[in-house]
């Protein structure tokens, strides 16, 4: 399944670095968006006098 390479350590480390950084590019926007949406929802709820979701009553 996984091909056998000469210089395998170098090849796989490079591809791993690539994978990690690409994954960061994919997940950073998703995580940030979730956080922003949660913040805005909380602000909206508080401004409408809805305190049922407030973690610190």
């Amino acid at each position: 399944m996984i091909p056998q390479f000469e210089f395998a350590v170098f090849v796989w480390t490079s591809y791993a670095i690539f994978a990690i950084i690409v994954a960061w590019q994919i997940f950073q926007p998703i995580l940030r968006r979730r956080r922003l949406e949660a913040e805005i929802r909380e602000e909206l709820a508080l401004s409408q006098g809805e305190y049922s979701n407030d973690p610190h009553p």
Partner: peptide
């Protein structure tokens, strides 16, 4: 594999596009 660099040239496929 490349005849000079063997498998290490496969790094090119992420190095050059980046």
């Amino acid at each position: 594999p490349d005849y000079q660099q063997s498998d290490s040239f496969r790094i090119l496929y992420i190095h050059v596009p980046s």
